[in-house]
Nucleic acid binder design. Sequence first.
DNA 1: CAAAATTGT
DNA 2: AGACAACAATTTTGT
Length: 885
Amino acid sequence: MSKNKKLLLIDGNSVSFRAFFAMHNVLEKFVNGEGIHTNALYAFNNMLELILKDEKPTHALVAFDAGKTTFRTKMFDEYKGTRAKTPQELMEQLPLIQEMLNYRGIKTYELPDYEADDIIGTMSHKAELDGMDVTIITGDRDLTQLATDKVTVKVNVKGVTETESYTPEHVQEKLGITPKQIIDMKGLMGDNSDHYPGVEKVGEKTAIKLLNQYGSVEGIYEHVDEMKKSKLKEHLINDKDKAFLSKKLATIDLDAPVELRLADLEYRGDNQEQLMQFYQKMNFKTFLSRMDIPQEDTAEKLADIKVLELNDAAVEKIANSDKIHTLIVEGFGENYHTSPIIGLLISDDKNYYGTTDFSILENPLLKDWLADGSKEKYLFDNKATIAQLTRYGCKLSGVTFDMLLVAYLLDTNDNKQDIGLVAKNYDINLPTEEEFYGKGVKKAVPEDDKVLLNFLAQKAQVINSLKDKMMSELKENDQDSLYDEIELPLSIVLAEMEIKGITVEVSKLKEMENTFATRLAKIEQEIYQEAGKKFNINSPKQLGVVLFEDLKLPVIKKTKTGYSTSVDVLEKLKDKSPVVQKVLDYRQISKIQSTYVVGLQKFVQPDNKIHTIYLQTLTQTGRLSSIEPNLQNIPIRIDEGKQIRKAFVPQHEDWEIFSADYSQVELRVLAHISGDEHMQEAFNEDYDIHAHTAMRIFGLDSTDEVTPNMRRQAKATNFGIVYGISDYGLSQNIGISRKKAAEFIASYFEQYPGVKKYMDDIVRYARENGYVETIMHRRRYLPDIHSRNFNIRNFAQRTAMNTPIQGSAADIIKVAMINMQKMLEKEKLQANLLLQVHDEMIFEAPKAEIETLEKLVPSVMDSAVKLDVPLKVETAHGKTWYEAK
DNA sequence: CAAAATTGT
DNA sequence: AGACAACAATTTTGT
């Protein structure tokens, strides 16, 4: 049997409207070359692709409203009377949407005097009689009256990519009436947005109740006399005419004079050629890349670049040239500290020399050229390139353009870590790593070296062609010194730290593994005892059943999928059952065991060291992050976890671990950029900042009156301020009422008016400029600051407050790291900078150097930048990381 | 592959 | 009305 035919009907106007507002916050980002907005077009097409994929229709139609006047306005001239005018920015897109649908092989239609609804109703009715399945897409709930066994109405919810499906069953479930009765319901309650009246004081609930009793508007009025005396009865009688009129207005015409046959709606698929041209005109890169463009194009381009052999002769030419060269050292695999190089390419923008034979790296001329700082080089990802080359015995110097770093500084939001993605942002078509190598099981290096080297040549070409443009953008943003003096030098420092690595005593971890295993087994048994059964404690789902169903503990919080079993919930249940504390203990230890004790061992290399990778271009604030493994979240708060730090040791006997951290950098940064006098005074006088805050917000005369609890609350408030305060968040954090938290904040702002002013100013700045900046001009764009969605907008506002603080602190420590590395070299110290943990630097050093470091490191760190308040540095040292704190 | 949980600053 | 503290990485479940 052939598959059933399926008709897709789209309410063009209402979906366009939804699409427009779904992407309203990026309105000004979606403008094509001719200055026409394209956001609704984009969102519409996005939705369309999803729907086509899901529904696989054989027939399709998009219906539009023909004009302002319809048979309904003739019946009731205020129909849709108060509806706001369609925004100009959307109006200009409607013809484009129709044009695009045409290229996508989908019929569009409008009919004078009728609304899109009526066209859809009529065609859906026809199709159903013909035995077809029908799916209707709309942003308007009114159309749910059309749902039948054969017709599903999908209504867009939040944006356009998600829909809610209305079948007769779903309508029944949701409203308790049939789809047909929706018309009666609308008749009774009227419609605000279409601006027609119903019966006074009758809303959805009353309407449904009446319909359940009497079936329809007609039914109600047949029996209205029998109803007992009530206000409702009076209203019904008074507004009888309105009810019948509104019912008529609400009724979608199933027999409009639509001159279309079902055969006319056959869906034929895209007209590739025209659609491609259209996408190009609209600047739709993502859609273009999604098209199955015949492969010849790219293949031809690949062949365009002639790659010469990178041999001794080529090296000689390169080494003797004064030209700038682009360098591609291609690694393959996850981790560049361990995975091999698979290709090497050097280009002067005219000639491309490439090879897969790495014996060339033994060529002394090439070695010298790579290490020669006066030979200028461009590349993508300096840090990774240095790390790779180091393993092949080469030094690298003279890099002036790192496309990865520049792309990150220009916009932290999009497309880092992959040169293909950066290129696409600039309208250049270069395969991403995934597109070139494939993904999952298919990921592989091409058999043919030529193919690989051509890819590398393309990369080199892209780097070269974008260098000027990107560097001038950097200058326009006033970010050139952030790049020249911070990020680029830092990439070298980080490379050195990663390569050096930190020594780990595996035997220590092994020892801990055993003790924790026994402890875990014991707690596990105890929990089973209490619970009366065996289950997986690691599964929040199973644990939820045990706690809240078997043991009947009160449910404090729920997640999307079930009961929440997070710490804050468990903390509240601690005294209700002894099992809760045991679960908390189990969780803690099991985390330590799996992530750290066992997890870390996997990363220890044959040199007994762990070489993490710092991601320099990931975070939105400018902080670093650390992966494989993350060495920025090694436990410290609870002692069991802190033990892990005993396994981190210096690489030599008679050396120590030395750590130095900034004390309250973020608050100091806030004191600086807000210019708040009271906060600055507190730091200038070196008061205990949290006690000082407590004194001020609790209205005390001296810090002597501050109780530990007051200090704790003040500390939390300080944190809250840094994070972009909200009363709810603060109340959750210190367990006070929301009202009390709001009072704290009000009092805080009263005491620190400069801080209040900063918060207001920075949010306004973000609204006006679309971004915020750190002290070193690191930028973060905040398109959501204009969002209509309360939560999204609030989040953007908090981000606006937090990013300059967190980001400036990140700037400061980055400068300190660079200066520190220079200083160690200058002073000819053996000490090595090994780790950075946001406000802390960790070194290993001979015992003999510790005394020097105790003076030197703080002096370098607190002079990294000049603020209006002093920076404070604290140091510690010991035989292991555990002792150095 | 997403969600929940836990770790850090 | 909304239901929210900032920035990260990793492990484990369960679909």
